[in-house]
Amino acid sequence: MTVALLYSITGFLLFLMGICGLIFRSSLIRRALALNITASGIFLFIVAQAYKGESALPDPVPHGLVLTGIVIGASATALMIYLIGVLRYVSPGDNDSGEEE
């Protein structure tokens, strides 16, 4: 088994675990964690496929894509955590801003 294959499989499994986490967990923080695990799985898969062995240079394009992916994923997670925080302060039926909707 090659290194690339081993880490690709690990990436696949992480992806599956993240999806399972989404199914079986309903708490929002858990769902945010599960989404992050899913994303890590995908990133691991991409980077493993870019790995070309000990002596060869890895493909830098997937690394660039994953870096973008990490930043976007972190942004989405941060927005989610913030929204969860706001939700805690706004109880049902409470009209915080006087909108008519």
Binding site: M80, L83, V86, L87, P92, E101
Partner: peptide, 19 residues
């Protein structure tokens, strides 16, 4: 709107859009 309903709708939307 920052109401409970809209925040819930937004969070649901976010989880699904993320996925």
């Amino acid at each position: 709107p920052r109401t409970h309903e809209s925040l819930k709708a937004a969070l649901n939307y976010l989880v699904i859009a993320f996925l």
